[in-house]
């Protein structure tokens, strides 16, 4: 489904990604962990070309993102993204947040878009908030709307960039629950997170990134309980 080869990203003289290779299968849930500054968010943002890679190739669903002839807007329709800071549109209510892209991008008619949106809002437990504005919602609710908004484009892959890092502790659970449901429904997911519990429970594969590379990867049990690389061991000893 996703195939990354030799991915490098430089910001000026700073090399954030120093050659990342990985393959992610359809329906797989991959969790990326690592210290801050290890390049995990940058890697994720390359997967929908919010960051343009300096070198290397990314192929999603047979489409090479890194080729200049690729229509990125088409690719992005298939790759949903959830941000740390939610980034809901504050001038639109919840329902409009979810319907905007299907109506504008996919030219879905409004009634159909609203039906779809309400169904998704029900899925994330917020159908009663359809007419509310983002600033009337808690952080956890906003993030669940953001997930519904991304799902409204019916993506093949969902990227999560530290989706719970900006949340008060008591709201983390509700967002993780929605993500767990999504994983159970077979969504292909790439999740950058500090939630080790979630990584262990929902992740099918854990990648540990450090200094712009994937240092170690494997099933959660192996990475968390029998890490081989000393850098993985040091990192985990600090956070577990």
């Amino acid at each position: 489904m996703i195939r990354v080869r030799g991915l490098k990203k430089r910001f000026g003289r700073l090399e954030v990604l120093r050659g990342v290779d990985c393959d992610i299968d359809q329906g797989e849930v991959v969790v990326i962990i690592g210290p801050s500054g290890s390049g995990k968010s940058t890697f994720l943002r390359c997967l929908n070309m919010l960051e343009e890679p300096t070198e290397g190739s990314i192929i999603i669903d047979g489409v090479e993102l890194t080729s200049p002839s690729t229509n990125l807007n088409l690719v992005r329709q298939k790759v949903g993204m959830v941000f740390q800071s939610f980034n809901l549109f504050p001038h639109k209510n919840v329902l409009e947040n979810v319907t905007l892209a299907p109506v504008v991008v996919k030219k879905l008619d409004r009634a159909a878009a609203e039906r779809l949106a309400l169904e998704l809002l029900r899925k994330v437990g917020l159908e009663d908030k359809a007419r509310a504005y983002p600033d009337q919602l808690s952080g956890g609710q906003q993030q669940r709307v953001a997930i519904a908004r991304a799902l409204a484009m019916q993506p093949a892959v969902m990227l999560f960039d530290e989706p719970t890092s900006a949340l008060d502790p008591e709201m983390v659970g509700e967002v993780l629950a929605v993500m767990r449901d999504l994983a159970r429904d077979g969504m292909t997911m790439v999740v950058v997170t500090h939630e080790m519990g979630f990584a262990r429970e929902v992740g099918q594969r854990v990648m540990f990134m450090d200094e712009g590379r994937i240092v170690e990867e494997g099933p959660p049990d192996k990475i968390f309980y029998r890490p081989e690389n000393p850098r993985t061991q040091t990192f985990l000893s600090k956070i577990l």
């Binding site: 929908n48 919010l50 807007n73 088409l74 992005r76 329709q77 790759v79 949903g80 993204m81 941000f83 980034n87 809901l88 549109f89 905007l100 892209a101 504008v104 991008v105 996919k106 953001a146 908004r149 991304a150 484009m153």
Partner: peptide
Amino acid sequence: EAARSLGM
């Protein structure tokens, strides 16, 4: 970024 990530 949010708008672009939705394909706009």
